[in-house]
Design a protein around this nucleic acid. Structure first.
Length: 279
DNA sequence: ATTGTCCCCTGCCCGC
DNA sequence: TGCGGGCAGGGGACAA
């Protein structure tokens, strides 16, 4: 579920419902997520007020009045459910009960997600953030910085963009969509990116992410937004999951065989070979 | 240093 | 209808 737009949607939902609230009780049903939740997690956060929320890449940071920040990553299947019912949901590993009598649940069938603590002043030195690339919607991500990152990198541009050290928050869906929109072949070596194409690519990444955020993210399978509604950006996908369907940019082009797929670095890439070219 | 492979875990969908 | 295989939004640990 969670690439940047989904994480942003989850963060905003939590912010609206939880900012200023105090945690009165914390239930941890399983500590063994991607990494173990710290043993003192419950004791540390209970009694704290949730001061503010921020997203960094695919992580959510929750600043607490006790001086610690919760670091939350949704992995592949993590969900946050606000107004969670009394009856435990399947795979509901953590529940925060707040002073307004509501319950906020973390649900994660595959347990690839994580929940950790870091002292708020030390957030910037948290392992995951130290070498993380720029925010794609921020000023520090530009054609120039992207070209700089591409220098000497022979790996294909698609797996390259999945590397969180290059740019933060992109995942398999939005990389496929951005490369398609920019008409760049996923197999093109990163170091072959030209200035003009870098500009197009940066614009494509920004617009696809912004459009997805505006749509509340993409809903796959049982993913719902924290407040229970569905994101609907999956209806705007042009290539992801569209194997053998017509390429929207090549209507009636006889040479266009439609959307193809292949595997790169163990992940499926969807693309239109007719439309997406090197350089 | 860069790059590719494997693995963590559960659920779902497909083909037989 | 039932079962096994493959695949899924991520990313870290290794090996080459």
């Amino acid at each position: 579920m969670p690439e940047l737009p989904e994480v942003e949607t989850v963060m905003r939902g939590m912010q609206i419902a939880l900012q200023g609230r105090t945690i009165v009780r914390t239930i941890i049903r399983r500590h063994d997520l991607r990494w173990r939740i710290p043993a003192d997690f419950s004791q540390t956060v209970t009694g704290s007020t949730l001061l503010n929320f921020q997203r960094r890449g695919k992580y959510i940071l929750i600043r607490l009045s006790c001086g610690q920040s919760i670091v939350l990553h949704l992995g592949m299947s993590g969900r946050v459910l606000l107004d969670s019912p009394e009856t435990p949901q399947p795979h509901e590993h953590v529940v925060f009960e707040t002073d307004d009598g509501k319950r906020c649940a973390y649900i994660d069938p595959r347990r690839f997600g994580m929940m950790d603590l870091v002292p708020t002043p030390d957030e910037h030195s948290y392992r995951a953030f130290v070498k993380m690339g720029p925010e794609p919607l921020g000023n520090s991500f530009s054609p120039q910085t992207l070209l700089e990152a591409c220098k000497g990198r022979r790996t294909a541009i698609k797996p390259f963009l999945l590397d969180q050290h290059v740019v933060a928050g992109l995942g398999n869906i939005y990389v496929c969509e951005a490369l398609y929109r920019a008409s760049i072949a996923p197999t093109m070596p990163a170091c072959d990116l030209k200035a003009r194409a870098a500009g197009t690519l940066v614009r494509a990444i920004r617009t696809v992410l912004q459009d997805a955020i505006a749509a509340g993210g993409s809903s796959l399978k049982d993913y719902v937004r924290p407040e229970g509604g569905l994101g609907y950006f999956q209806h705007a996908w042009q290539v992801y999951g569209k194997h053998n369907q017509p390429c929207p940019k090549c209507p009636g082009t006889p040479t266009c065989a439609g959307v193809q797929h292949m595997t790169q670095a163990g992940r499926t890439t969807f693309f239109c070979p007719q439309h997406q070219k090197n350089g």
